[in-house]
């Protein structure tokens, strides 16, 4: 029970910290001081205490966008296990619900963007749905590999691996899958090289441009759910690249937090040393991710029987 409470607490409290760590890393690379690590919390709290300016073109969909997104992401967060602990909700086939909750969030985010009638926001949502068409199949290939390895259709068991732990024989497919999933993580959370969260040129953005018209608490909710999405996908990835646990249960919580912050630093490094890809090259990157996950599956089925 305590574990479940900690899980929910972490899910709710920790996400904005990741953004802070990423920004700090980037600032460090650029030789700046950078905003405080807790800046994202301040931003969100500030936004929640403001009023809203709403476009005259919009309808209820505009408000439904952020609300549904947050609900979907929260529910998805309940399905994944954190560290060595089981997820609060687990049932066979929850991986499909997990993937489709992100789809639901995408439906309403993009619809809310289209609701403003702004050409830029239309552009952003077109890109968002286009790239999802490649990143979602990649995610399913990864799930196939994990399900086959662990012999289960429950995210908790899939991510924890088989009862005896991931054996070294599984390393080859898992390497491929983790590369693929890392690209999916970058694409889904709109980081460089797919999208630049800092740019202010509307023509080149994906996620930021979709939320141009949202303000006040709605914008706060959007920032928060984006951070939570990163928290969730990062947690999934951590299970694959760092599947180590200690015997003492309570140590696993701080260990997980350190691992996740480490991942945030890695993302920050990637953002610092890479440039954003040109928009028409992004499908190539995502197809490569899809191929990696696919190879992982072929390898697994063909050579690990």
């Amino acid at each position: 029970m305590t574990d479940k409470i900690i899980h929910i607490l972490l899910l709710i409290v920790m996400p904005p910290l990741l953004l802070g760590v990423i920004n700090k890393t980037k600032a460090w690379f650029a030789g700046r001081n950078g905003p405080p690590v807790l800046q994202s919390y301040y931003d969100i709290i500030k936004l929640l205490r403001k009023g809203m300016v709403i476009s005259t073109t919009t309808t209820w969909i505009f408000i439904a966008g952020p609300v549904v997104t947050l609900a979907a992401v929260l529910l998805a967060g309940m399905l994944i296990p954190i560290g060595s602990f089981n997820s609060p909700i687990a049932f066979a086939g929850d991986l499909i619900l997990f993937a489709y909750l992100f789809g639901l969030a995408r439906f309403f985010t993009t619809a809310a963007a289209m609701d403003t009638g702004s050409p830029f926001e239309g552009m952003g949502s077109a890109r968002e749905v286009t790239f999802a068409c490649l990143s979602e199949p990649a995610m399913f290939f990864a799930f196939l590999v994990l399900a086959k390895l662990s012999g289960s259709l429950t995210l908790t068991h899939m991510l924890h691996g088989p009862a005896e732990g991931f054996s070294s024989a599984m390393a080859a497919p898992l390497i491929l899958v983790s590369i693929g999933l890392f690209v999916v993580l970058l694409a889904e959370t709109c980081r460089i090289p797919v999208d630049d969260p800092n740019t202010h040129l509307e023509l080149t953005m994906i996620h930021e441009v979709m939320v141009l018209d949202h303000s006040g608490p709605l914008l706060g909710i959007i920032l928060y759910s984006a951070a939570m999405k990163m928290f969730i996908l990062g947690t999934v990835l951590l299970h694959i690249i760092l599947p180590f646990q200690t015997r003492t249960m309570w140590i696993n919580w701080p260990m997980f937090i350190i691992e996740l912050l480490g991942l945030a630093i890695v993302i920050g490094i990637v953002e610092s040393i890479m440039a954003r890809l040109r928009m028409r090259h992004i499908p190539g990157l995502l197809i490569a991710a899809l191929l990696f996950c696919g190879f992982g599956f072929i390898l697994l089925v063909r050579y690990n029987q």
Binding site: A169, A172, L291, L299
Partner: peptide
């Protein structure tokens, strides 16, 4: 040993694709 070998070989495969794509 075979497992580690396979892991290395997979990295080589990944590098092949990278060489093609950049």
């Amino acid at each position: 040993m075979t497992d580690l070998l396979n892991a290395v070989l997979v990295i080589i495969l990944v590098m092949n694709l990278f060489a093609l794509g950049t």
